[in-house]
């Protein structure tokens, strides 16, 4: 076995996996607080990528600086989607209905993106996107390191918000039990709306890095959402820590198996892991069994 290739694969897995972790965190946060499965998360990542593309190509704004515009923009987009469609969902069928509603939203967005940007694939370009440096004989790509750093910063901010702020207490209370949270005076609806906005806002960062490392068009979202959903299932629906670990595992396991057994097995490896974990822990790595029965 080629040890260098193995270390390379492991390194790439951790760096790339952190991005998936970031994108999946928004998805699991929304599910945890709102019982909503947002299958539009994939296309919203692509919206983030296209926003960065538009700012870069038409206004010459650097990809990272552009986040100062795209993150708030997608936060607002999230609020609008939540207020217009998801806030109206009630009752025991809410989660199932949310899949249909967000799928419809994703189709509308996909069609709009195809009309605006065409179906031709594009990629984000900047002087640092393809550059790398060497440490100990290993190449480290700037964009992956920057993406990793961005994921760490944003996930840390999310953790700080959840565990060090008053709003975070409301979120965690809603995560644990919405009815009880409402009884103690928490405006669960407001918390839900803001959480959905945050969940969508992180796609701006994920989308920018994704667009700089992958050629994309609107249809790319289908592959993305299938990956993001399996990440939150493996990590445990509603678990932020679980999403982070599973995001890294998704790419790490695939890459390492790819080197050891060949690329043909790399995609399957993650799903084998997923099945094994679900057989042993049906609630996922960090999911709480029956925590959201109410």
């Amino acid at each position: 076995m080629n040890v260098t290739a193995l270390i390379d694969a492991a390194k790439d897995g951790i760096l790339t996996g952190s991005l998936y972790a970031l994108m999946a965190t928004g998805l699991t946060l929304v599910f945890g607080v709102m019982d909503i499965i947002n299958v539009a998360q994939g296309i919203l990542v692509i919206v983030g990528a296209y926003l960065s593309y538009a700012l870069s190509v038409h206004f010459g704004i650097d990809l990272f600086l552009g986040l100062l515009i795209t993150i708030p923009t997608l936060f607002v987009v999230g609020i609008v989607i939540e207020r217009a469609f998801l806030g109206r969902l009630k009752g025991p069928e809410k989660t199932a209905m949310s899949i249909l509603v967000t799928y419809a939203v994703s189709l509308v967005i996909e069609g709009s993106l195809n009309m605006i940007f065409s179906v031709n694939p594009v990629q984000l370009h900047a002087w640092y996107v393809n550059k790398s440096f060497v440490v100990g004989g290993y190449h480290f790509a700037f964009i992956y390191l920057a993406g990793f750093a961005l994921a760490v910063v944003l996930l840390s901010a999310l953790y700080y918000m959840l565990y060090r702020t008053r709003f975070g207490v409301s979120v965690r209370a809603s995560l644990a039990d919405q009815a009880s949270a409402a009884l103690v005076g928490i405006d669960v609806r407001r918390v839900s709306t803001i959480c959905f906005g945050i969940g969508v806002a992180v796609t701006a960062a994920g989308g920018m890095i994704y667009g700089a490392t992958t050629t994309f068009n609107a249809s790319t979202s289908y592959d993305l959402i299938s990956r993001l959903l399996t990440i939150i299932v493996l990590g445990g629906m509603g678990s932020l820590g679980g999403a982070m670990l599973a995001g890294v595992l998704l790419v790490f396991v695939g890459n390492v198996v790819g080197v050891i057994a060949g690329a043909v097995w790399s995609t399957m490896a993650y799903y084998v892991l997923l099945i094994i974990v679900l057989l042993v822990r049906p609630q996922g790595l960090f999911g709480k069994q029956s925590a959201r029965v109410a």
Binding site: N2, T4, A5, D8, A9, D12, G13, T16, T214, T220, D223, V251, G254, N255, G258, V259, G262, A263, V264, S266, T267
Partner: peptide
Amino acid sequence: NKVFPAEVTDFTPIADAVAA
């Protein structure tokens, strides 16, 4: 001389192996 599945979307490890 390797074949990869058509559904692969992350080509970095395969490309790295070729580069090596």
